[in-house]
């Protein structure tokens, strides 16, 4: 497994594909000019208000879209792939305010756009783009939830985060999890929490030599923090 820590991203290879884990939480595949983001959860605040009566600040869609716009601009992506759970539920697609619909439409214009189905949404059918359960492209397979025994798999779903003790201070950051067979992306959506890398599910999925790439201001590779038995 080749790994290169650079200023603002971590380069690595997966089943022969050269990839970049970016500080934003997006995965960039330069050879294909493909930008991949997972778990946008657009419309989360709307869904919470509708379903639970909790009124979170209703600005997370524009925040997520503006970060996505920055990433598209920075990479000049020809293809954008949303790896599932793009919308918090189907109804959130229909209740998206007009200006946010236009914004998303503008982002989609002039490039290839692929929606992978997630467990929260089967894909926003009202928007254009390609809808797929999963995508096979060259050496890589893109799907929402990691499968058993994969080769070159890119997935999301778990919103991994990792915790690191730095000089007595504890620091938690969302992260990529990467081993020789797969990469699991952090959630790109603004209103998303995370599952710690020492959770049993994640430890079972990842090989012993897996790394975590912490994201935030920079992307930073560390050995994947795991819970200890005992």
């Amino acid at each position: 497994m080749r790994f290169e820590q650079r200023m603002n991203d971590v380069r690595f290879s997966l089943n022969g594909a050269e990839l970049s884990a970016r500080a934003s939480g997006a995965l960039w595949w330069p050879a294909e000019r493909m930008l991949c983001v997972s778990d946008l959860h657009l419309g989360k605040s709307e869904r919470l208000a509708r379903r639970t009566g909790q009124y979170l600040p209703p600005y997370e869609v524009r925040e997520t879209l503006s970060r996505l716009e920055d990433e598209i601009a920075a990479t000049d992506a020809a293809t954008v792939l949303c790896l599932g759970d793009s919308f918090d539920d189907l109804s959130a697609v229909n209740t998206l305010p007009e200006d946010e619909v236009l914004w998303l439409t503008r982002l989609m214009a002039g490039r290839r756009w692929i929606w992978i189905e997630g467990n929260h949404d089967p894909g926003p059918l009202d928007f254009g783009g390609t809808h797929l359960a999963e995508l096979q492209r060259g050496p890589l397979t893109f799907r929402h939830i990691a499968a058993a025994d994969p080769v070159g798999e890119v997935s999301g779903h778990y919103h991994p985060k990792a915790r690191l003790a730095v000089r007595g201070q504890s620091l938690t950051r969302p992260c990529f999890l990467i081993d020789g067979r797969r990469v699991i992306l952090p959630a790109f959506g603004t209103y998303t929490g995370g599952l710690r890398s020492d959770a049993a599910e994640l430890c079972a999925l990842m090989a012993p030599d897996a790394r975590a790439v912490l994201i935030g201001k920079t992307a930073q590779a560390i050995p994947m923090p795991r819970g200890r038995v005992g």
């Binding site: 600005y59 524009r62 209103y191």
Partner: peptide, 23 residues
């Protein structure tokens, strides 16, 4: 049980400060 569903209130603070500073 919350895990992935719950997220830090810091995110709400940052979002409000950016989009609705007079809230």
């Amino acid at each position: 049980s919350g895990r992935q569903a719950t997220f830090s209130s810091d995110i709400l603070y940052d979002t409000l400060l950016k989009y609705d500073p007079d809230h």
